[in-house]
């Protein structure tokens, strides 16, 4: 026998299912779209050589390289580091006491103004963005989340900061940030109860290097963790995540 939640979800699911007519229409749409792709597979006919072919080829190569980088970042779990970033990249990602106090104070000030409606603060990039709900939410603890991209030339020991985003969010609050048309980040954080914080983070960047990562991690407080390593050309990149519960003693007052 199904549990009540499964039962009600199953009924909802069956009600949302499209009818035969709509599904048939979609099937034709899909097969038409696939039909246009099939043309690619036909034997090549001789075409006049002209400079546009080079442009297409270069464009195609660029797209292919970008796609490979993105796919590489997504599907190469063997390259994903799971250990804490305890090498010389850590200082660049670690949160200083001053930063933690400043973020906690900023969130408190916003809470005084907006109450529980303040859901998140994006405190990077020159100006502060606020996520304000239209009505009161739950007064859950603020969590600081930082995601950084580090880079270094192959052979070098020194990492440099290539990209950084720091935000304060309430636990279990989904935050979606769009930095430009092709660069976005979504996060969702939740204290696991054992002192660690679960963080779901999705990052898509067009620059400084095309990166697309989707990670679900359990992180220790203020312990940078490298969640993705990649290399493009002669440059190595790391995506590092760090979290801290700002309601902890010493920060909340």
């Amino acid at each position: 026998m199904k549990r009540p939640l499964d039962d009600v979800l199953a009924r909802w699911g069956s009600q949302q299912a499209p009818g035969e007519a709509r599904l048939d229409e979609l099937r034709h749409r899909v097969t038409d779209a696939l039909g246009s792709r099939r043309l690619v597979e036909l034997p090549e006919v001789a075409r006049p050589r002209d400079r546009h072919r080079w442009r297409w080829a270069l464009g195609g190569a660029a797209v292919a390289v970008a796609a490979m980088l993105v796919l590489y970042a997504i599907i190469a779990p063997s390259r994903r580091a799971t250990a804490d970033a305890n090498d010389n990249s850590s200082p660049l990602a670690r949160l200083s006491d001053a930063e933690l106090r400043r973020s906690a104070a900023l969130f408190r000030r916003m809470e005084e103004v907006f109450g529980d409606r303040i859901r998140w603060i994006d405190d990077d990039g020159g100006d502060v963005q606020l996520g304000i709900a239209s009505d009161d939410g739950s007064a859950s603890a603020p969590l600081l989340v930082r995601v950084v991209v580090l880079s270094r030339a192959a052979g070098s020991r020194e990492w440099t900061l290539a990209w950084k985003r720091t935000l304060v969010t309430r636990c279990e609050e989904r935050v979606d940030l769009a930095f430009d048309a092709r660069s976005r980040m979504s996060i969702w954080a939740y204290p696991a109860g054992d002192g660690r914080i679960a963080l779901d983070a999705s990052l898509a960047l067009a620059a400084p290097v095309p990166i697309s990562s989707l990670c679900s991690e359990l992180l220790n407080a203020n312990a940078p963790k490298c969640v993705l390593e990649m290399k493009t050309g002669d440059v190595e990149y790391q995506v590092v995540e760090i979290v801290q519960d700002l309601s902890k003693k010493g920060l909340s007052s």
């Binding site: 009600q15 009818g19 007519a21």
Partner: peptide, 9 residues
């Protein structure tokens, strides 16, 4: 959201 052709439940 629901087509007329959707199965009655």
């Amino acid at each position: 959201k629901i087509d007329a052709g959707a199965a009655p439940d």
